[in-house]
C-alpha cells in the first residue's frame, strides 16, 4: 500500500504516457492504435501553432494586431539568426528553422499550464527529433561535399601522428550531437517540471496546515512564483538554443569548416 502511495504521488507521474483511446484489432497482422496523451497534446500543439498564425494574419488590416507584431518580430529574429549562422545564400532553411522553433516553443509553453502534459519531456520526442536532425544534416553534408565530408573530422594543421586520435575524438564529438540536442531539451524540461511538482506538493501541505504556517508559507510561495517565471524563461531559452544549434549544424554541413 505504501509503495502504491509512492507511485501515485511520484513527481515523475506527470511524464507518463497513457492511452486515452485505443484500438486493438487482429488486422494487418496485429493492429494496435492508440491516442495517447502525447498524441493528443501533439495535435493540440499543431492546432495552436496554426491558430496563432491565423490570428497573426495581417492580410487585410493596415494596423497590425499584437499577435501579428509578435510573429513578425519572431520571424525577423529567426531570419537574422539563419542569415548570420547559415549564410545569406542559404535562407531556404528558414521555414524549417522557423517551424522547429515554434514546435518546441509552443510545446514547452503548453507544458507550463498546470495539469497539462509536456511533450518535450518525452525522451522519444526529443531524441527522435535530434536523431532526425543529426541524420538529415549528415545526409546534407554528404550530398554537398561527397567524400570530402570526412575531412571535417581532421582539424586543419593537425600533425599526421595525431590524426588517428583526433579523428576518433572528432567522430565521438560529432556523434554526440545526435543525443546532446535532444537530451538538453528533455533534461531541462523534466528537471524544471519535477522541481515545480515537488515544491507545489510541499507548499500545498504547508498551506493546508494552521493559519500562522499558511501566512508564513507566502514567502516560499513568492519564490515558487519566481521559479514558475524561470520555467517560462527556460521554455523560450531552450527552443532558441535548439534552433541556434541546428543552424550551427547546418552551417557545418554546408561550409564544413
Amino acid at each position: 500500500m505504501q509503495n502504491l502511495n509512492f507511485i501515485i504521488n511520484s513527481p515523475l507521474e506527470q511524464f507518463e504516457v497513457t492511452s486515452l483511446i485505443g484500438l486493438n484489432a487482429p488486422i494487418f497482422g496485429y493492429l494496435n492504435t492508440s491516442l495517447t496523451n502525447l498524441g493528443l497534446y501533439s495535435l493540440l500543439l499543431l492546432f495552436l501553432v496554426v491558430g496563432l498564425h491565423f490570428m497573426g494574419n495581417n492580410e487585410t488590416k493596415i494596423i497590425p494586431n499584437k499577435w501579428s507584431i509578435s510573429l513578425e518580430s519572431s520571424f525577423a529574429s529567426l531570419s537574422s539568426m539563419v542569415r548570420e549562422q547559415i549564410g545569406v545564400t542559404n535562407e531556404i532553411f528558414l521555414p524549417f528553422i522557423y517551424s522547429l522553433f515554434f514546435f518546441v516553443l509552443i510545446g514547452n509553453l503548453i507544458s507550463n499550464v498546470p495539469y497539462s502534459f509536456a511533450i518535450t519531456s518525452s525522451a522519444i520526442v526529443c531524441l527522435g527529433l535530434s536523431v532526425t536532425i543529426f541524420i538529415g544534416v549528415t545526409l546534407l553534408a554528404l550530398s554537398i561535399h561527397k567524400i570530402k565530408f570526412f575531412s571535417f573530422f581532421i582539424p586543419s594543421g593537425t600533425p599526421l601522428a595525431l590524426v588517428p586520435l583526433l579523428v576518433l575524438i572528432e567522430l565521438v564529438s560529432y556523434g554526440a550531437r545526435a543525443g546532446s540536442l535532444g537530451i538538453r531539451l528533455f533534461a531541462n524540461i523534466v528537471a524544471g517540471h519535477t522541481l515545480l511538482k515537488i515544491l507545489s506538493t510541499f507548499l500545498y501541505k504547508l498551506f493546508s496546515g494552521n493559519l500562522v504556517v499558511a501566512v508564513l508559507t507566502l514567502i516560499p510561495f513568492g519564490i515558487f512564483i519566481g521559479l514558475v517565471g524561470l520555467e517560462l524563461a527556460v521554455s523560450f531559452i531552450q527552443s532558441f538554443v535548439l534552433t541556434l544549434l541546428v543552424c550551427s549544424y547546418l552551417r557545418d554541413a554546408i561550409k564544413l569548416h
Binding site: I92, F93, F96, G128, V131, I135, L140
Partner: peptide
C-alpha cells in the same frame, strides 16, 4: 530542396 535530407532522416528514424 532544403527538406529532402530531413525527410529521408525522418524515415530512417
Amino acid at each position: 530542396k532544403p527538406m529532402w535530407p530531413f525527410m529521408a532522416a525522418g524515415t530512417i528514424t
